[in-house]
Amino acid sequence: MSDNDRFERLEARARAEFEASVDGLDAATRSRLNQARQRALAELREDAHSTRGLRLWRPALALGAAAVLAVLLWRAPNPSTPADSAAAELAFDEIVFATDSEDLDLAREDLDFYAFVADSAQRTDDGVGLGNGSG
């Protein structure tokens, strides 16, 4: 018998023995294997279901997102409009005026002047004329 024949015989016998041992597995082991397979396939079905759920909601989610975006764009202030630009410039001028030291001095002088005028008017009412010097 050649080496090839011997190897072929070995292969055939090993295969037959293995098949017989697979067929001879007890019922409990078969049942556990079946359960393991069902668990694995159940996971596949769960994945498919969750993906399908997302797919079903996709149009609704897209519509909702588009609506929210439209509202945001509509309600958001647009700084490029002329009215808003003018308002922004005015506010800037006010800030410059308020922080300008020369204008602040002028304002303080005005207040002194108004206080002087009010004081003079009071003296006139009390009979103390501006031109009526005591000395």
């Binding site: 697979v22 597995l25 078969r30 079946n34 397979r37 396939l41």
Partner: peptide, 19 residues
């Protein structure tokens, strides 16, 4: 269909794989 095909495949190999 994919689930059925996988079921058939795994059923054919599970006992052999266990051995």
């Amino acid at each position: 269909q994919q689930s059925k095909a996988l079921d058939r495949f795994l059923a054919t190999v599970e006992r052999r794989a266990y051995r």
